[in-house]
Design a protein around this nucleic acid. Structure first.
Lengths: 225, 225
DNA sequence: CTCGAACTTATTGTATACAATAGGATATTT
DNA sequence: AAATATCCTATTGTATACAATAAGTTCGAG
C-alpha cells in the first residue's frame, strides 16, 4: 500500500483521530519510507480536505462538525442526483444490466446481516458504493465523477452503515430499486428525486446518531470495545 | 510566484498549450528551481484536473473538449445556484451590502468598455469573479466554495468575457441585479433560478464561439491569482 | 512583573544523487 | 516482413543532506 492510501486508511479507520497532528518525519518513520513520498501523499490528502495545515508546521487530521456533515451530504445529494438524472438519459442496456447486478449484490450483502461483524458492514458499504459508481459510469461525466469521489470519503469515515438497522437497510434497498426503475424507463427527473431522497435519508440517519451524545466510533477492527 | 501558480498561469495564458508535454526536469529548468518543488506543484495541478498523466512519463496539459466545457458549466450551474440559494437564506445585511458594492464595481468595469483592450477584459473578469465570491461567502459553505473554485478555472482559460459584446455584458449585469434582488428579499428559489440561468447564458455564449471554426485564443498575460 | 529582543529548536523547504522502470530502439528469429 | 526478446535511455521514484524559517523559550530592560 502506498503512503497516500496508508494514511487515508488510517484516518478512515480512526487510527489517526480527528485533531491528531501529523508531521512528515513521524509519518515517514511510521511507514518506513523517506519524507519524499510522504510529501506527495500529504499534498493529495490536503486537496482531499482530510488534513489541514496547522500553524505552518505540519498538518492535523480534519475534525468534521455536524455542520460539515450536513453540507457534505447536501452536496452529495445535489451531485449524485444530477448523476442519476444524466444516467437515466444516457444509459445503454449493458450499463443498466450492470447496475442491476450491483444492486443484486447489495441485496445479498444486506440480507446476511445476522452476523453484524465488521466484515459484513464493509461488504455492505462496498456493495452500496459499487452500485452508485455504476450509475456515474452510465452518466458519462468524468468531471461529475471526480467531484463526487471527493465527497464520499467523509460518509465512510462516519460509517453510516454501522448504525443501520434492518429496517433502514431494506428501505435503502427499496430506494435503489426505484432509482433503477427510473433509469430503466429513462425518466431523469424521477431518478434525480429518488437519488436525492436516498442521500437525504442517509444524511438524517447519520445526524440522528451524531446527536446522541454517548456514541463513540470504533477504532480499527475492534467492534465491541 | 511559486511553481504552482507559475505553471497554472502559463496554462491559463496559453503559453503551455493543450497537449503540451510537461516533464519535471524541463519545468525545473524553466523555473530555475529543483525538481522537488515542481513535484509539489504537479500534484496540485493534477488534482485540479489541468494536467493529466501521460504514459507514466510526465504529464500533458489537458485538452478540454466541447463536451468537457458543457459538463463543467453545467456543474457550475448546479453548484453556484445552490450557493445563491443558501446565500439568500443565510445572508447578513453587511454581506448584502458587500455584494452590492462588488456589483457596482462590475457595472463600472463593463461601462468603460474601450473593448479589445486586455486590461479591460481582465478587470471585467475579476469584477465578475469578486461578485460571485461574495455570494459564496454569504452562503457560509466552505465545502461548496472549494468545489466551485475547481470549476472556475476552465471558463477563465476559455476567456468568456473576451467574446462578449456590449449587449451580452449588459444582460449579465441585469441578471446580477436579479440575483441580488432575490438575495435581498431572501427568496432562495428565485436566487437559484436566476444564477442557473446566468451560468447557462455564459455556457452558451462560449459554446457558440467555440463552434465558429476560425477562432483562436490570445496568448498574453494571465488574469490573476 | 511585563514586554519585547534574541536565541533555540522543531519542522518544512530545497537541492541533488542515485535507484527503479517503462517505452522505445535494436537485434534476433522465423 | 512480422513477431519477439534484449538492451538502452529518458524520466520518474526515493533517500538524504542541508538551508530556511516559524514557534516556542529564555533572557534582559524598563
Amino acid at each position: 500500500m502506498n503512503p497516500y492510501n496508508a494514511i487515508k486508511n488510517a484516518i478512515i479507520i480512526g487510527e489517526y483521530e480527528p485533531g491528531t497532528r501529523l508531521t512528515e518525519e513521524a509519518l515517514a518513520e511510521s511507514l518506513q519510507v523517506s519524507r519524499t513520498p510522504i510529501r506527495d501523499a500529504i499534498k493529495q490528502l490536503e486537496s482531499d480536505g482530510l488534513i489541514i495545515p496547522y500553524k505552518r508546521r505540519g498538518y492535523i487530521v480534519k475534525e468534521f462538525s455536524i455542520k460539515d456533515i450536513r453540507q457534505i451530504y447536501n452536496l452529495r445529494a445535489l451531485l449524485e442526483s444530477h448523476g442519476a438524472s444524466e444516467a437515466a438519459l444516457n444509459r445503454t442496456d449493458e450499463e443498466l444490466e450492470r447496475m442491476r447486478e450491483k444492486n443484486t449484490a447489495y441485496e445479498q450483502a444486506i440480507t446476511k446481516l445476522e452476523r453484524s461483524d465488521i466484515e459484513t458492514i464493509k461488504n455492505i458499504q462496498q456493495a452500496n458504493q459499487d452500485f452508485h459508481e455504476e450509475i456515474f459510469k452510465a452518466a458519462k461525466n468524468e468531471h461529475l465523477r471526480a467531484h463526487i469521489a471527493k465527497l464520499v470519503v467523509v460518509p465512510i469515515i462516519f460509517r453510516s452503515f454501522y448504525w443501520y438497522n434492518e429496517r433502514q437497510l431494506l428501505r435503502s434497498l427499496e430506494v435503489h430499486k426505484t432509482i433503477l426503475k427510473a433509469i430503466e424507463n429513462q425518466e431523469p427527473e424521477r431518478a434525480k428525486i429518488a437519488m436525492q431522497e436516498h442521500i437525504y435519508q442517509g444524511r438524517d440517519d447519520v445526524l440522528i446518531q451524531l446527536n446522541k451524545p454517548q456514541i463513540h466510533l470504533w477504532k480499527g477492527e475492534a467492534i465491541n470495545d
